[in-house]
Design a binder for these strands. Structure first.
Lengths: 243, 243
DNA sequence: CGAGGCCTTGACCCAGCTCAAATAAGGTGG
DNA sequence: CCACCTTATTTGAGCTGGGTCAAGGCCTCG
């Protein structure tokens, strides 16, 4: 275990790297780091479940976390799956007292948590930061809109393609190698389909676009081909990334 | 046509009624009203299309407006359908220069538009207002999460039921009478289904829950029955409204 | 080496889509 | 007020993508 001071400074450097925190002064940032906690969590850990009190904002440094809602009938809808750089729990910033979803670690992760009241205070103090939070929320909402579109308009293989493309930078060219970060079942649910369908859809995508899949590793020789196949049904086309 | 001053004061009173603007001082509100424009728009009018410059925030006073995205293949995904009290164009607040969706009037409407820079300035000036904007965005995002869940988990008749319930206040009791506000085709797309499916699903919902439909009018005798049928597949149950 | 998890495959089913045709509901001009 | 034309809504018939259930295959870990 690292000494406390070293941990703090590590947290600090991670926070500094987040776009969301850019408008914060060094002092303000240090203040956050002071009360922030860094934890290592094992796969399977439930960080909180829906309706838990909403007291912290979380930032994923490494690993994977899924956000989900459970229906009365026991079905589960995965709203998002986050990796390095992903935020969750921001609902706390807007005065919600309950988490509207649950969060579970699906791949061993390092996670920083920050008491929500600290951030709420900072919003009041620093309107530039308030603006940054608005922008963050806005981006999130836009992504949800896209997600809704995808689920109505894209076929299962296309949704997988779209998911893969999110990990490709626009700097195309040459073959790309990706590591599917986690459990295929989780990916399947993230994309709103059953594991069986995921498996079949991936097979189809493979034969349709020439990508190669070995275990969790995906190799893309011809990015353009994947883009053509995937984005034809969508309102945005390839480097459709979140700017 | 009303004299200009009367129009301004009408706009002002509408703005004052919005939760979003509660934190604004009378002066600030008057400032907004000064530059706000109130227009009557005919069904079919396209207010703007995707990728248009993002210069205004809009507030619907009456009538109906749909927000949508179009895919390259010409399919259309309706992201939302707004009526009295609905906001759109808030993306402008976060520095996006292009509208990420189009907006079309689907039922004659009165709409107020406010230059976005005015609001952006106000966010910087008044952090309580910034907070209110964050809350608004948050609520929107949550609704999108719910929407994603609904589309994966609910059947077509249930989605219609859920849509109807949004117009019922929790103060249940007695029979409820609703006026389906617009074109059934629009409702169908809003719910992510084809018009034919909508028609059949509505028939099913009718026989399943005893509601009665005549043209655009819906009568609900037994609200509880509708709730039971509709919400069983969902993670939230009836007065699941946006608080 | 055996047990338990994933992932893939096969077989079958069904909700919702598509195409096509029949009705209903408005709206217009005479 | 009526005939006529246009646009919405319903209905029918058949298709299909993806879901469900069940049976292997494969890999990991004890």
């Amino acid at each position: 275990m690292l000494p406390v001071s070293a941990q703090k400074s590590m947290v600090l450097s991670h926070l500094r790297r987040q776009a969301l925190f850019k408008p914060l002064s060094d002092d303000a940032l240090a203040g956050l780091a002071e009360y922030a906690a860094l934890k290592r969590e094992k796969k399977g850990t439930v960080l909180f479940s829906a309706e838990a009190p909403n007291e912290k904002i979380y930032l994923v440094l490494s690993g994977w976390v899924k956000l989900f809602r459970e229906t009365l009938a026991g079905d589960e809808a995965v709203t998002d799956v986050l990796s390095s750089g992903g935020f969750f729990g921001e609902f706390g910033l807007s005065g919600h007292d309950e988490m509207p979803y649950g969060a579970e670690v699906v791949e061993d992760a390092e996670i920083v948590s920050i008491p929500r009241f600290l951030l709420a205070e900072e919003i009041m103090r620093n309107s530039l930061f308030g603006m940054a939070v608005v922008q963050n929320m806005t981006r999130q909402r836009l992504q949800r809109d896209m997600e809704i579109e995808h689920r109505t308009v894209q076929s299962a293989p296309q949704r997988i393609g779209c998911f893969l493309l999110k990990f490709c930078r626009g700097d195309n060219a040459g073959p790309v190698v990706l590591h599917l970060p986690y459990d295929k079942t989780v990916v399947a649910h993230r994309l709103g389909m059953q594991p069986e369908t995921f498996s079949r859809a991936l097979a189809k995508l493979r034969e349709e676009t020439g990508i190669r899949v070995r275990g969790a590793t995906v190799e893309i020789d011809n990015l353009q081909k994947l883009v053509d196949y995937t984005c034809s049904a969508c309102s945005a086309s390839f480097p459709c990334a979140d700017k």
